[in-house]
Write a protein that binds this DNA or RNA. Sequence first.
DNA 1: CACACATGACTGACTAGCCGGTCATCTGAT
DNA 2: ATCAGATGACCGGCTAGTCAGTCATGTGTG
Lengths: 210, 210
Amino acid sequence: MRMSEPPKPATRQRRRKEERPGEILAAALTLFSERGFSATRLEDVADRAGIAKGTIYLYFQTKEDLFEAVVRDAFAPLLERLTGALELPSANSAVILRFIIETLYRQMVATEKREILRLLIAEAKRFPTLVSFYHREAVSRGKAIVAEILRRGIESGEFRDGPATRYPEVIIGPAILAAIWKLVFEPVDPMDLDEMIEAHLDLVLNSILK
Amino acid sequence: MRMSEPPKPATRQRRRKEERPGEILAAALTLFSERGFSATRLEDVADRAGIAKGTIYLYFQTKEDLFEAVVRDAFAPLLERLTGALELPSANSAVILRFIIETLYRQMVATEKREILRLLIAEAKRFPTLVSFYHREAVSRGKAIVAEILRRGIESGEFRDGPATRYPEVIIGPAILAAIWKLVFEPVDPMDLDEMIEAHLDLVLNSILK
DNA sequence: CACACATGACTGACTAGCCGGTCATCTGAT
DNA sequence: ATCAGATGACCGGCTAGTCAGTCATGTGTG
């Protein structure tokens, strides 16, 4: 059985120093979020990426490094649109807040990117540096953006001042629930995101608009 | 090396057919939520429970069975207080809703029981029957309770009728965020639960009270 | 009471198989 | 010819699950 095959008969070997890491990350993201860190075998990652196991080690030191890279990588395009929201100069704060919440659903909840949330929750204790990274690069920044909009709205008289407008977390809470719901219960009891968004905005705006 | 130790020098062997399963479940809950399903070794569970590995197999068929038992077991006392809330006859709906939300924080978010949430999220894809179980026994019932209170409040004229009051999920969303926050970011950026509860209630009641 | 015997909870060495990581070798583009 | 990129057989360590054996306790007998 061994030595039987001329290894790559059909497709010619491709040299893709550039593309490889991304392909590996994509394959790894899928498998890690399906099975978790420990239960994912690097050979399966390799298969899915169409390469041999050894190739992974040309680009990543260890399985843990690969995992960290997967989670870090997926975060990159996340905050761009949100920070952009702050720059919209003409709009009032309610419009901007609405935009932020909708963006959150469209970017995080509705897409596969929510799987990152699963990985972060599942492996938080094993990867504390990753948790710090996400807190620093994504969460605290997102919090600051929402806080800034709330502050502006209060200052301009659009929003009331109160506990709710001083706790950004509470404003976006339902979006996190929606993400978790899709991660866990979607097969059993799917959630209509458009209705959820409408209800979320209805709750928030009716509460904080003067 | 083998045969060297008289196995139980000090403590005499105890027979505890009754207590064993509970002890094993407690040990397993701790380790599963620290390390996840795959990374937890049954020998460590045994050590923590003060027994030998083989003993686990007297009470549970496989590692997966043990995991399911852990998660199922932890759910039991969860909904009792909430269903009780519906029976408070004299109180108005706002008081009951406030009670429900506070109970959620005190029972789920503030205690170790939130670890169940972590396990459910992490292993949802591997244990679909467990997901169904939780949806049926806990989530859909909880949803029904909140929906019932909202319905009563609308009927009595306390609450406005709108998207927010037709989507129970949106009402309890911030509590889920709080649970996740504690599971992931607590070491980096702790959350003050009392302030969170206050902000949550402020958000919700200001929105739906007429 | 005392002694033999039965019970079954408990043990832990062991097996079989899995998987992260290595490295000698191969391949094809230049 | 050279060599970066890629391969996959292999190694070593690990662990779910097994099972033959142990022993504390219970039971029946004289």
